[in-house]
Design a protein around this nucleic acid. Structure first.
Lengths: 245, 245
DNA sequence: CGACGTGTTGATCTCTCTCAATTAGAGTGG
DNA sequence: CCACTCTAATTGAGAGAGATCAACACGTCG
């Protein structure tokens, strides 16, 4: 695994990713430390861990989370292949969140100072990283809107749609056959600020209504229109611009 | 106002801010467009607004928010002097969130392409901006943990402490005389995913217990210890587990 | 086979929401 | 100086979405 050069990273073949300038890839390659594999359910970064690694999720799903001292856990966002983790942490500090693998994952890890090296040596990549960090924040923003202001049904509809879209964008056929869905109901509950039991009941209700189906670790949207309506999502999942009054 | 050069910006005198390398300030100054004032309660950026400005909050408080089409509003985080806004937005895109002034504010606005110009011309500033974006995300993360997993009492305690800390850090005496607190109860409710009525009742309960006091637009913590306990915030130090990678 | 993790469902319970009404203060205009 | 209006804060009462408690089904695995 470690012998695949960045220039042949399968992630780069996806239409999502922008081409780099010549030389950029070599730079990234030189900062890459190694490829690490983590099994489903295992911890990638522990909450409070000092000197946590910087990495790109290369294959598999994971999630960032925080917990309270009595064990209540909130999943902050889900990580899919191509996501970059570690910017959140001050260089010298403890990681403010934990990261755990949802499925078996592979990570490309980088040296702690890679962030600075990239910025200095290739400002355009530094710029992309800033954008990446901002983009991840917007995922958290979306989730916060859900958790703060949507009902259980609406939250679940929102999560299913947004995860489906992200996952489908990584597939060649775009999700016609469903998308991989390695979350348990406990993950959904922890991501949406709901109890496990209520999550189950709501999920079943939507499924019985024919809105979706989760089976064999895959998610199928059976009535995406209805889900979008429930979620109050338009087009891209962005709120529709509202007129001035 | 517009004639104050960046080199004499009062914000820079605060111990929070790092000194820039010579030349950096001139660069920033050159990208600065103008200083804008907005009155309390007015909109700074509208949800979905195209070509929203990039700015630093120079004086006063504001907040970022999102709304659902039926009017339910979630405040994502509060902005205090020194906070930088606009990275979240893709260059060409509509703003995914609105920004509104809580008090009368002054903003230093920048050209839309200032982000890129900074990265290219001064990588160290670009690096700082990445860090700033990541830091703001961590505020949202904290809030998401509250909204998703804390009770109403705990959420309010958490918000009061964190806002107090941020506000006190901007004051010379560090909050001995309380800190400015321009939020209405509706803002607190929208920030914590609570109803206005329940926010009021919880706030009064904590106040009657002698934990805090809000008066004349200022916040006083009367029993910070008890608030911290309620909020389940451990100063800054969390247990530091062993690194896995 | 028993232990365990995950999903399901029914029966309460309670925290928080919604509805309603009142009070207090800041402006405004006569 | 005093009605009039508006916004923010308050408080009570009743309703409800979602939490908690308890069982049970099913598949995997050592």
């Amino acid at each position: 695994m470690n012998d695949i050069p960045c220039s042949q990273c399968p992630l780069r073949a996806l239409p999502l990713f922008v081409p780099y300038a010549p030389g950029d890839l070599e730079l990234i390659q030189s900062l890459k430390k190694r490829v690490v594999s983590v099994k489903a359910g295992e911890s990638i970064i522990q909450e409070g861990q000092a000197d946590a690694p910087l990495f790109t999720l290369f294959a598999g799903w994971a999630f960032r989370f925080k917990t309270l001292s009595d064990g209540r856990r909130q999943i902050l966002n889900f990580l899919l292949p191509g996501d970059f983790i570690g910017v959140q942490q001050k260089m010298t500090d403890a990681s403010p969140h934990g990261v755990e693998a949802l499925s078996d994952v592979n990570l490309c890890t980088f040296q702690r100072d890679a962030l600075w090296a990239l910025h200095r040596a290739a400002p355009s990549i530094g710029f992309d990283i800033t954008w990446l960090a901002a983009h991840e924040e917007s995922l958290v923003d979306d989730n916060l809107l859900s958790v703060g202001r949507r009902s259980a049904e609406e939250r679940i509809a929102t999560l299913l749609i947004l995860l489906f879209k992200r996952a489908a964008a990584l597939l060649p056929q775009g999700g016609a056959e469903g998308v991989p869905f390695p979350l348990t109901q406990q993950h959904i509950a922890d991501g949406l600020g709901l109890s496990l039991v209520h999550t189950n009941k709501t999920l079943r209700k939507l499924e019985r209504r024919g809105l979706h189906r989760i089976e064999g670790g895959r998610l199928f949207l059976r009535d995406a229109r209805a889900l979008v309506r429930l979620a109050d999502l338009y087009g891209d999942g962005k709120p529709s611009p509202r007129p001035l009054i």
